[in-house]
Simulated scan of single mutants.
Amino acid sequence: MEEARQSGVIGKLLGSVNSTMRRILFTFMSSGPIPQHIAFIMDGNRRFAKKWKLEEGAGHKAGFLALMSVLKYCYEVGVKYVTVYAFSLDNFNRRPDEVQYVMDIMHEKIEGFMKELDMVNRYGVRVLFIGDLNRLDEPVRVAAEKAMEATAKNTKTYLLVCVAYTSSHEIPRAVYEACQEKSKTNNNDDDGIVDVNDVIKAVDLEKHMYMGVVPDPDVLVRSSGETRLSNFLLWQSNNCLLYSPKALWPEMGFWQVVWGIFKYQRSYYYLEKQKKQA
C-alpha cells in the first residue's frame, strides 16, 4: 500500500516537472512565429498494431491517445486551429465490413472525446466536422452533430475533423455552389446558369469550401514518413509547410509537434513571401 502511494507521488512529481519544462520550452518557442493552423494526416495506426503484434483495433485506440496528446501540445504552444483527416470519401470503396468497422470506431472515439471534458473546457475547444456528413452512418452523424452543438460556444481553439472528405469532392461542390449563387444574384433565378460575362473568382470558391470556416493551414503533417497528400486539403495547402515525421501516428507526440513548429519558424519568412506573391 505504501509502495503504491509512493509510486503515485513520484508519478505526480514527474508529471509536474514535465509540465514545467514543457511550459518553459513553449515560452521560448513563442518568441518566434507560431503556426495558427496545423493539419494532420493520421497515418500508421494499422502498421503500429502490426509492428507490435496487437489485436485488431488496438492501433486506432493508441492513435486516439496520441491525438489527445498532440492536441494538448498544439493548444498549449498557441496553435488555434487543428485539423485531422479522419476518414476519406474514397474509404467508402473498401469492403462493407471494413467500412462499418471504421464507422464503429469513429462513433466510439467521438463519444470518447466528448468525455474528455477537462481538456475540452480547459482549452475552450470547438469541434467542427467537415465533409459530406450525410454519407456517415446515422449514429456517427448524430454523435458528430451533438459534439458540434455541445462545443458551439467555444471560440478559444478549434478541432476540425475531416470525415467523408476529399478535395476532389470539395472543389467541384464549391464550384457548383458558387455558380448557383452567382446565378441567383445576377439573374434572380436558381437554374445555376452563369452569364458568360460573370467570372467565378477564387474568393467565390473559397467561400463555399468545406474548409472555408477557418484559415488555410500553415503546416500540413503526415505521420509515418509518407509524403502523399491523399486528396487532403489540396486547395488550401498550396503555400503551407509539408512535414513528414517518420513516427507512426500512435507514436506521434511532444517532440514531433515541437520539431514541426521549429521547421515552420525556420521557413516562416520564405512561406510568407510566397503567400504575398500568390
Rank of each mutant, 00 (worst) to 15 (best):
P139S: 11
T185R: 09
A174L: 03
L233G: 13
Q236C: 10
E181Q: 13
D137Y: 03
S168N: 10
G212K: 02
Y165V: 01
L133Q: 15
K146T: 08
K153L: 15
M148G: 13
E177L: 03
V219M: 06
V221M: 15
A174V: 05
K146H: 08
R228K: 00
G212C: 06
A174G: 13
A202K: 03
N186I: 00
D204R: 01
L229E: 05
E226I: 09
K207N: 15
G131W: 01
L220I: 12
E138A: 15
T157I: 02
Y210P: 15
T155G: 11
M148K: 06
L136T: 11
K184I: 14
R228L: 07
S230V: 08
N187W: 05
N134T: 13
D216P: 09
D132F: 02
V214N: 00
E138Q: 03
P139G: 08
K201C: 14
P172M: 04
E170G: 07
V161Y: 00
V161N: 01
N231G: 01
E177N: 11
N134I: 06
V175K: 04
K184R: 06
R135D: 09
A178N: 09
E170C: 00
G225P: 07
C162V: 05
Q236S: 14
V219Y: 07
N188K: 13
N197R: 02
K146G: 12
Q236A: 11
N187M: 07
C162F: 05
M148V: 04
V127A: 03
D216Y: 08
K182V: 13
V199F: 10
G225C: 08
D195S: 12
K153R: 03
V213T: 12
S224Y: 00
V194R: 01
V175P: 11
V221D: 07
I193E: 09
L205T: 12
D195H: 14
I193M: 09
K156W: 03
H169W: 09
V140K: 02
S224V: 06
K207D: 14
E170K: 00
V221T: 09
A150C: 10
S168H: 08
L233N: 13
V213Y: 04
R228H: 08
T155E: 01
C162W: 02
A143P: 12
Y158R: 00
